[in-house]
Write a protein that binds this DNA or RNA. Sequence first.
RNA 1: GGUGAGGUGGCUGAGUGGUCGAAAGCAGCGCUUUGCUAAAGCGCCGUACUCCAAAAGGGUACCGAGGGUUCGAAUCCCUCCCUCACCGCCA
Length: 424
Amino acid sequence: MLDIRLIREQPDMVKTRIATRGNADDVAKIDEVLRVDAERRQAETALQQLNADRKRLSKEIGGKRARGEATEEIETRVRGIGDQIALLNEQTTAADEQQKQILLALPNLPHPAATIGKDASENPAVRSWGEKPDLKGPVLDHVALGTKLKLFDPDRATKLSGSGFICFTGAGAKLERALINFMLDLHTREHGYLEMSPPFLVLRDCMIGTSQLPKFEEDMYGLEENQLFLAPTAEVPVTNFHREEILAAADLPKKYVAYTPCFRREAGSAGRETRGIIRVHQFDKVELVKITAPESSYTEHESLTADAERVLQLLGLHYRVIELCTGDLTFGSAKTYDIEVWSPGQNSYLEVSSCSNFEEYQARRMNLRFKDAEGKNRFCHTLNGSGVALPRLFAALIESCQQPDGSVRIPEKLQPYFGAAEIR
RNA sequence: GGUGAGGUGGCUGAGUGGUCGAAAGCAGCGCUUUGCUAAAGCGCCGUACUCCAAAAGGGUACCGAGGGUUCGAAUCCCUCCCUCACCGCCA
């Protein structure tokens, strides 16, 4: 959520920066929120004056009663003030709510140094690591390989939950588990993250806090009856862990890692990149979350991205890192790096991680603050990134490690977790 | 799910209709005293919004949340949430 004071004081700067996202509605919303804000403050000032009057006169009544004097006249006056207060109260509450809704629907400002562009085609490449594997023999994609080696069963998964679900089986299920444990151990032992195992169902307030709601409700699974949502990413429960808190500066940065399944409706993306296990309604992910002081968030953003990259490096998988340009930047993010692993079967790169710095955008929504050296309460910065998402990692791994004889070689670092050197 | 007891500032804890944004204590900060430590004394010590060009300084709201009664609510009434205890159910 953007600071209304920033919008009030520097409306042109806010408009210019938000416009780089390429959505004209956002700019219009700035003007709207400024208008509502002005109305709100005017009504609020009038209301406060009336409240002050009522408070003063009510105290007078108390005094007069104590002295045994008549109070009917004042009581009548105050009753009249009370009626006005009720009216103005409705106005300010409505304006307040309206302002809040507009602010919740406005995306974050892209970082001032962000690459300006209209969509994914203009995302600048940052770096790449490793080489495309030199595969001998016919290259199978992960669907063919997985089916042949019985690593997962798309057809039977459909029988269970409909299209867009996957069921891992046998060595596939074990590989999934091995990858989760490998990543959790890496991030906790070598990168200093604290492991969390959070609830997968979260309250609406959490979804608002990390900015999935109110704007993206159609992409979420919700349980109508008790107002819970299936978390689309561990980012939601883990970042909201400290919602409404004031942390000590000495406790920052907080670094958390969590494995959770992720639930996404993927509304509107039917048919796109849906082959095999590339885009499913439920997938596993190991997520990295940081809560930092504003001064260090960009340094922490670089190291978080490096921590995620390390997973692919240790598995020997070729990848590249790109920066999202303003037009492709996610809603709440100020800066995002995507990590894309090479998929020989798709002959393209697959996004396995999206590492974002939200600055204070989420913290403001969830009222997450810290006490700085001067004792002032300030908003934290929040960051997260996948470390990394599993189905695409799984696909890239089996495709990249396939052998001419049709087996899959397990990367050395993963063997202790998988318990074997190959799948055949 | 049932019954009972609770939810007040960083913490403990007073406050059952009027000058209560809230006693007192602890913790914290500053000053005085002091060779140091300790102790004592004095003062400060919540958050948000808002008014003023700004500072200084005002104002309003907030005692789990939301409604209601009243001229006036931390205090009375209703609903909900949460915590604790016991009972029931249950992996």
